[in-house]
Simulated scan of single mutants.
Amino acid sequence: MYIIAGLGNPTREYEKTRHNVGFEAVDILADKLGARVTEKKHRAFCGTGRIGPEKVILSKPQTFMNLSGESIRAMADFYKVEPDHIIIICDDINLAEGQLRIRTKGSAGGHNGLKNIINHLGTQEFSRIRVGVGEKPKEMDLADYVLGRFPREQEGVMDQAYQDAAEAAIMMVTEGAEAAMNFFNRKK
């Protein structure tokens, strides 16, 4: 079993913001799997599906970004899923818009949602699919940038990124993280 969680902030106020790319990707993945991510439990909206023979729990934590680890830990404990079977999809300001970067472990890299997950799981050994949202302008506050929406001209690039992130998650489950890294980390 796998947990695939997209990070974001709840409420309509944050829909379609840079920080909510994880929610967008999980919605696309749910569509591909014929799943519904509507059941409220573990401080998240959850749904179940199958990728090949593997059962997957799809999740959109409702704890707000900086407390995502509370929800992820509750799910991991309830379903008895080890960190190496957890895949987190989140935004990354260090990558160009739409670019993906897949890793099986590593630091939070300044991302408060990942930092909280690391703290709650007690390890950095979980997979993450980072979705590029572009570098923030120097004169702009980081919070304002990640809580802002994409300009219209970037929407197509981001729609493709959500598709790619969903496909990357599927590949990670079916073929392994290394195959997904080899394919998606090189894709521009």
Rank of each mutant, 00 (worst) to 15 (best):
M1T: 13
Y2N: 04
G6P: 03
G6E: 04
L7Q: 02
L7I: 06
P10T: 07
R12T: 11
Y14N: 03
V21D: 02
V21I: 13
E24K: 15
A25E: 09
V26A: 04
I28Y: 07
I28C: 07
I28D: 05
L29Q: 07
D31L: 11
K32R: 15
L33I: 10
T38M: 12
H42I: 08
R43V: 02
R43I: 02
R43Y: 15
C46E: 11
G47T: 11
I51F: 13
I51L: 11
I57V: 15
L58K: 01
K60A: 04
P61N: 00
Q62A: 12
T63P: 01
T63A: 01
F64G: 00
N66H: 03
L67K: 08
S68G: 04
S68L: 01
E70R: 03
S71I: 02
S71N: 03
R73D: 02
A74C: 04
K80N: 08
V81Q: 05
V81K: 03
H85V: 01
I87D: 05
I88C: 03
I89R: 07
I89G: 02
D91N: 13
L95S: 03
L95R: 02
E97T: 15
E97R: 11
G98S: 07
A108F: 07
G110H: 06
H111R: 10
N112F: 04
K115I: 12
I118L: 05
H120P: 01
H120G: 00
H120K: 15
L121V: 05
L121M: 10
G122T: 10
G122K: 09
T123L: 12
Q124H: 13
S127L: 07
S127E: 06
S127C: 14
R128G: 09
V133C: 01
G134L: 04
E135R: 15
E135H: 14
P137M: 10
P137K: 13
E139S: 14
M140L: 13
D141W: 00
L142S: 09
L142C: 08
V146Q: 05
L147D: 01
G148C: 06
F150K: 08
P151D: 14
E153D: 14
E153A: 08
E155A: 13
V157C: 10
M158Y: 13
Q160R: 15
A165W: 06
E167W: 04
A168E: 08
I170N: 04
E175D: 14
G176S: 07
G176N: 03
A177P: 07
E178P: 00
A179L: 01
N182V: 02
R186M: 09
K187V: 05
